[in-house]
């Protein structure tokens, strides 16, 4: 296989990775930020960074875990730069927890059940808002993205024990928020 053909193959391979993993990366970033524009921007940055480093991806973990790790770092970097924090807040379109809870599909619930479920979702959003960044990341990867503990450990660069500890604390806070508002 010549160089051009290899590059063509890599580009096609990367393109299929984007198509299959973009929804998950976007969803994770949306749940983390509650800001559609910011989630889209960070998703684009994530795939741009991944594309530039695609030839260095050795496949030690799955492409999804590798992409999630990039996304987590990008989000961390975004909030770390305190100097620009004021201007970032002015341009932020973070929706409040009430608005975020309205996206719950009604499914087969009746009106009362739907109201109750929406109330529960609102409390979960409130609890998630109060979690530390690391707890929030672990919680969302586990309960929104339904990732296994070892995948979460790889994506966050934490040990499985630390992931379990963060998860336990995060669940405790969610449980308390749900219980305290019954």
């Amino acid at each position: 296989m010549d160089v051009d053909a290899a590059e063509e193959f890599a580009a096609q391979e990367f393109s299929s990775v984007v198509t299959s993993h973009r929804p998950q990366i976007f969803r994770f970033l949306l749940a983390s930020t509650r800001d559609v524009d910011l989630a889209e921007t960070l998703t684009q940055e994530c795939f741009l960074k991944a594309y530039r480093n695609w030839k260095h991806f050795r496949g030690d973990s799955s492409a999804m875990t590798w992409l999630m790790r990039i996304a987590i770092n990008l989000e961390k970097d975004h909030w770390r730069n305190r100097r620009m924090q004021f201007w970032r807040h002015t341009q932020s379109h973070t929706v409040d927890v009430d608005e975020a809870s309205e996206w719950l599909p009604s499914g087969e619930r009746n009106a009362e059940q739907q109201l109750l479920a929406r109330e529960q979702v609102k409390h979960v959003w409130k609890a998630v808002e109060r979690l530390s960044q690391r707890q929030r990341t672990v919680f969302l990867l586990r309960y929104v993205e339904e990732r296994d503990l070892d995948e979460i450990a790889q994506a966050t660069g934490l040990s499985e024990g630390t992931v379990k500890a963060h998860l336990s604390r995060a669940l405790g806070k969610v449980r308390a928020e749900l219980g305290g508002n019954r």
């Binding site: 719950l104 529960q120 309960y143 929104v144 969610v174």
Partner: peptide, 16 residues
């Protein structure tokens, strides 16, 4: 609550 939360995020994300 966690199930509903997951549904909510998925629905919002798909629409967005």
């Amino acid at each position: 609550a966690l199930g509903s939360f997951r549904q909510c995020v998925h629905a919002w994300s798909e629409t967005a």
